[in-house]
Design a protein around this nucleic acid. Structure first.
Lengths: 117, 117
DNA sequence: TTAGCATATCGATGCTTGTCAATATCGTTT
DNA sequence: AAACGATATTGACAAGCATCGATATGCTAA
């Protein structure tokens, strides 16, 4: 255990536990586990590129069939990654006929970004 | 291949390739790989809690010796996770005598957060 | 109904990763 | 010098993951 030289600055940590600006309150184990799942979904280059392509689509949505070729992986692999992005809440999907269209969920991205301060 | 019903909205994508606001330009493979490394560092609950504890420290720094007990993992495991956070540029460390003090790197966190839009 | 295409799921495989015990490294103190 | 404590590294193992081929599901057109 290391003890700070002097500085016993009674910083009672002005954290309002409820309904206030809960600043600098360490993550609980369950919160950390939940957050880690989202970051895990973002921790793969293929998924980041998928998300990037989908986010930058002129119409805000992309057909899954248009993702396989630019990604350069097999169709099952792309489908697998899209599934992970979907389950992490980072994209939403809509089936129209034979095709499935994917859209980004910017609120989700903002929420994650704000957790990084 | 799916083709949009109508909507051939000549959106030439006002992306300035150089020196402008490079909006909605899909990530390159190398950029995606680099970003994925940072997210991988954030994709573990233990590392998120470490980062949280360090970030919320009153003095902005925490001795490694004060991290083992609250995390509840073995000392080598905690050391391993701190190493990954360090190599991702998320924390910096300073050795003082026998102890090693860890600080968060908020600029790095901001940079990552901004990549999420 | 049958054929054909888009997408998802399954099963297998090789690689990565989280974890710990044991050990090494390096200050400090006696 | 030797002993001790803090931290990092090593080696090993189990669990998880990315990937693909093969297959299943489901929609549409003939």
């Amino acid at each position: 255990m290391a003890t700070k030289s002097v500085k016993s600055t009674k910083s009672k940590s002005e954290t309002k536990v409820c309904c206030g600006t809960a600043r600098d309150i360490p993550l609980s184990k369950s919160d950390a586990a939940e957050l880690a799942l989202v970051f895990a979904a973002l921790s793969d280059p293929v998924r980041l590129r998928l998300l990037s392509i989908i986010s930058s689509a002129p119409d805000g949505e992309v057909c899954a069939c248009d993702l396989v070729t630019p990604i350069g992986k097999s169709q099952p692999t792309v489908s697998h990654h899209l599934r992970i992005l979907f389950e992490a809440g980072l994209v939403e999907r809509e089936k129209r006929g034979v095709w499935v269209w994917y859209r980004a969920v910017p609120e989700r991205l903002d929420a994650v970004a704000s957790r990084l301060r």
